[in-house]
Amino acid sequence: MRAAAASLVFLLALLPLAVSAQEPDPKPAPEPVAPSVEPSPQAASGAELPERIEIGLSTEIIAITSDFSGVELTIFGAVDNIDPLIQRQGRYDVAVILEGPTSNLVTRRKERVLGIWMNVDSQAFINVPESFLIASTRPPQDMTDLGTMARLSLGVEQIRLRSYEPDTADEADVLDFTQALRRLKEEGNLYEEFPAGVRFISQSLFRAQLRLPANVPLGRHTARAYLFRQGVLVAQTQSSLDIRKAGVEFQIYEAAQNRSLLYGMASVALAFLVGWLGRVMFRKD
């Protein structure tokens, strides 16, 4: 009985396989065998559980030490209840996005004034992700349609950069500032795409590899993973990752931020000490 059910699932799964296999073929496709006995999708989904995707970060905290110069971050994940046939055809796609904390930023543009280059115009942006790294099994435009890409921000071009007071500004100008912001972030490796960064290491296990740049923003990062079946989003999940400074640097940074008066006085005391020590050690006159 169970074997029969399994074979039924197998057969039903074969049909979409047959159709999809023809797509890359330029020759005219033969008529479907029996369009009248269309395999009911209800039957298929009734027999199968919906796909699920899960990701596991090897660590929830990444600590930046004094010699930090960027790191390769690997995120492992698993997909459940996948259709082995579709998987064998490579028609499941995974995209993993690691998005940094957001902040309000300003982009400024220099112009020549009386011969001197100075910042003249500027455009503020609200809730801009400080970093945005995306790894996927294929380039996102090959995985799904543009609408989905835009909706899920699947790609550096798709990151939503909201300008402040867009109504009062010149639209073309705002676009220039937006592109400049995106470009500067890309040049700093803070916005980056890894179009072959996700690999399936078994039927259901995948590995996403991203490179965190040396100047990765500190704070809470969100990891999002999307599973596409034949271009359609079927499952998603998210998890978080904290990036912190570690060791002495972290404590110094913390002190400068949260106990700034004490920090300032300690800096001055240190200066007095070093100045006095220098005098004492070299006193010959």
Partner: peptide, 23 residues
């Protein structure tokens, strides 16, 4: 000294590690 403390509290831009090396 006063300037250092005020910069530390208002702008948080005093880098004590950098300062120590220079000193």
């Amino acid at each position: 000294a006063y300037t250092t403390v005020v910069h530390a509290t208002t702008n948080r831009t005093v880098d004590v590690v950098l300062a120590l090396l220079l000193m």
